[in-house]
Write a protein that binds this DNA or RNA. Structure first.
Lengths: 172, 172
DNA sequence: TCTCCTGAGTTCGTTGACTGAACCGATGGC
DNA sequence: GCCATCGGTTCAGTCAACGAACTCAGGAGA
């Protein structure tokens, strides 16, 4: 979202949330994180985002406690960005917004299908209609009939197969 | 959100939605519309938004079918902006994002309380936990313990009393 | 009729975030 | 020694947001 993203003077929890996750690119970074993207390079390749912006956003998300930076190898030292519990709780809001876009802004069918694996039902409102709350690891993302993926980056290719949310995406 | 808000190359319904409702100020305009704000002047006074930006955003929302411009008096001719059915369906997503902000970005208690009047229960996930789906007109917004409203514009003052969602706010 | 006021914008110069390309430092492979 | 990769930082140019001033139409009062 946004630009100069402070909504000072708005005593409103939505404004506070938007100052953090309403900035331009941030929701898409989080969407990628939910499907398992963790590395700087993968975010970069999949989003076509300027490097400086990606670095700034990831840093802001870490500072806010939405993501955490974790060492995954020592030689050479490499770190990856993973969602914290606080970050994972953004899932219903982001999912709902995506579902709204799917229903109102697209003509072809859904691009991605979300299934709660233990019971097999399609997700509604970011949670399972029959089970209630949902562990994200139990949710499967699968390409839907509306998906037209022409991208060749590693993340897009991996997402052409069914995956579980949060399952780390390994591209190397 | 955003600046130059096209996420071309992202074949993703979330990106499509963000191109419309992810722009800077747009979510707050919609939030105000849900609590009954309809007039250019009221949006202006309550949001402290630059006039040019407000005009552009309202026009974009009308073009997208999220809001509609309706004549409410003829002499002098005056029009107001009301949510369409498509726009009202954004409520769960916006509400959830606000709730996330309430839980994670604020120390004092909730600023606004949302109640489903027919059954009296507090809203969860933008809908009623006992009744399921919800008519927005049946939802009451009430100031909560965390609210510190120092603003003196007509909208802020009106929101210090309980109101129903979508109930037109008359300030004149 | 003349003047003032209000609502709803538009215009315009300035500011500042986003963009993309180039550069940098550490590490590892050959 | 040379080259490639990962994860950034730096920098000049662009474009949207900002805020103040201006416009225009239609009353209201004198």
């Amino acid at each position: 979202m946004a630009l100069g993203t402070d909504y000072s003077g708005q005593d409103c929890s939505l404004a506070r949330a938007l100052e953090l996750v309403g900035e331009r690119w941030t929701p898409l970074i989080l969407r990628d994180a939910f499907v398992g993207v963790r590395r700087y390079r993968d975010f970069l390749d999949h989003l076509d985002i300027p490097r400086a912006v990606l670095a700034a956003r990831l840093q802001a998300l870490v500072d806010a406690g939405v993501m955490a930076k974790e060492r995954y190898q020592d030689s050479p030292p490499r770190e990856e960005y993973v969602l914290t519990a606080k970050g994972r709780e953004l899932w219903p809001a982001l999912h709902l917004l995506g579902q709204w876009g799917e229903q109102h802004l697209t003509e072809r069918g859904p691009r991605r299908l979300y299934t709660h694996l233990p019971c097999g039902s399609r997700l509604r409102n970011g949670s399972c209609p029959s089970c209630g709350a949902v562990e994200l690891e139990d949710v499967e993302v699968r390409p839907g009939p509306g998906l037209v993926s022409t991208r060749t980056d590693a993340v897009s290719v991996a997402l052409r197969e069914p995956r579980r949310l949060l399952d780390p995406l390994r591209t190397s």
